[in-house]
Design a binder for these strands. Sequence first.
DNA 1: CGGCAGTTTGACCAACATCAAGTTGGGTGG
DNA 2: CCACCCAACTTGATGTTGGTCAAACTGCCG
Lengths: 196, 196
Amino acid sequence: MGEKTDFLGSVLEGCVSLSRIMADGRRQMVGLLFPSDFIGRPMRPEAPFDAIAVSEVRLCIFSRSRFESLLHDTPALEQRLLEMTLDELDSAREWMVLLGRKTAKEKIASFFAIAARRLAAVRQVALEDGVSLDLPLTREDMADYLGLTIETVSRQISVLKKEKLIIMRDARHLTIPNYNALLEVAGDDSDGGMIA
Amino acid sequence: MGEKTDFLGSVLEGCVSLSRIMADGRRQMVGLLFPSDFIGRPMRPEAPFDAIAVSEVRLCIFSRSRFESLLHDTPALEQRLLEMTLDELDSAREWMVLLGRKTAKEKIASFFAIAARRLAAVRQVALEDGVSLDLPLTREDMADYLGLTIETVSRQISVLKKEKLIIMRDARHLTIPNYNALLEVAGDDSDGGMIA
DNA sequence: CGGCAGTTTGACCAACATCAAGTTGGGTGG
DNA sequence: CCACCCAACTTGATGTTGGTCAAACTGCCG
């Protein structure tokens, strides 16, 4: 778990997962890092979670010691990192609500809604009805992110397809005809949990 | 959800919960704040979660604006806050593993183990076999923290009692005869998830 | 044309939720 | 001091969601 990395960095391109694997093999993803997200655990040599590339990635890497001294000397950088960490904390807590209290169908709908929001942010375009995107995760990765099994993920995706809440050209390519309708199903009141 | 507080602060005595209530009433606790923990959301006027006192509490309160300017002018304070926030983030992620992948029994065992660790830290004593403590939460609060119902919480506590992993003098007073045995049941490999 | 990883679907099962009584214990008023 | 009350908790019977096991399907690569 969590190699002792001597590097910190940020994601430039692609997608990186953060996860924990329990002794008996159960796995839970605890975060999904998109371009501009910070990667690594400043101020602690052992990272408590595994960072795994989910697609091809380009990273920007700094040595831990150089980053930490730079951080120490640059209050503006430290402030920026604090802001990012506070946002990550809010995201993690939103995800706790999903894991603890949402149904399988709500979890899938939430994940699709969030993936669309993140991708729109990365592309720097507005999030409109009819957005299309390629899912960054396999069914197995989704299951581990959502606290489900791959079979349940697959079944609930089929349900959402049948209800016309999503359109899938193939297993990876998603279109959301009506974003607000999807949010409704996700169980988020109106403005839809502002997650990772 | 999350009143617009003009105050930030830290817990001096007692215990405060952070939670989200969904539109239909489902509730998920996303954090439990003990003495020395920070409370509030710096750099963002709206708190995204409700802070609710779980017991009688004493807080140390600062006005938001004064705290934020102090923060801006005091790199050491900012660094301390960054460290605390990074620790909270790790804790939140550990909790995600619990919510997403642990069984009801493992969740209860984890909660008891963590409560004992936190209480020992607050009391500044070592965590030894035979520790006793009064649970800070009702069964309902525990259920909302663990993503369960009160009935399941109650039943799994009964199971742990029958297996002599815990002793309960009454519904609130807990004794842990063998901490490592409890960690074993909690599903954490050996050193037992370092959670908030 | 296989072969294989990823996915889908079906039949069945188990864990946890729900619904419904009881039980306990501390607090109040007679 | 006792009787009652009520909230918190426990326990039992049954229901439902999501997990497990198993079999097929898809599309891509060699």
